[in-house]
């Protein structure tokens, strides 16, 4: 679990930016997100890990775009489907997580966070901090650091 989340008291309220990737609802702790933007003109980076769609210019900053569908093992979206990026910072660098949809911000009690089911795909298991059982569906909490750190490890391995 990301340290920030772990240190919170049980009765703490956490705000999550919700995103949808291939139909599945995910939550990103609001402190991890600094931007939501429509990615334009992504320049592909040859020889880069497959999850990296490329780099783009966000108001003068170079942002590395991570294809979350690929990262999470979902089928890729069709070319005409819109995508939207969630800007996150990792090790002082800016990354854009490409998702299908950004939804509302939810405020949830930490106590409602349940542990991951043990039969979860280990890749997913590593990248999620836990699950919220919402009325309509399940929301997985993404650990942004692990999502990005693992790409790096897998790439340099």
């Amino acid at each position: 679990m990301s340290t920030q989340l772990a240190t919170l008291r049980d009765d703490a309220q956490i705000q999550f930016v919700t995103v949808r990737i291939a139909g599945q609802l995910f939550g990103l702790p609001i402190w991890a997100v600094h931007d939501v933007f429509v990615p334009q003109r992504i320049t592909p980076v040859p020889l880069a890990p497959a999850e990296i769609d490329g780099v783009l210019n966000l108001r003068g900053r170079i942002v590395t775009a991570v294809n979350m569908r690929r990262r999470l093992g979902f089928p890729l979206r069709d070319a005409d489907e819109v995508e939207i990026a969630v800007g996150v910072d990792y090790l002082g660098e800016t990354y854009g997580l490409l998702v299908d949809e950004v939804g509302e911000v939810l405020t949830l009690d930490k106590s409602r966070l349940t542990t991951k089911p043990p039969n979860l795909d280990p890749r997913w298991s590593a990248m999620t901090d836990g699950v919220f059982s919402l009325d309509a569906e399940l929301m997985a909490v993404l650990d942004v650091e692990v999502v990005l750190a693992n790409i790096k490890e897998e790439a340099s391995a």
């Binding site: 020889l47 880069a48 890990p49 990296i52 780099v55 590395t64 990354y95 790096k152």
Partner: peptide
């Protein structure tokens, strides 16, 4: 480049 791409 970001650290993820540094090995390229």
């Amino acid at each position: 480049v970001s650290s993820i791409l540094r090995h390229v």
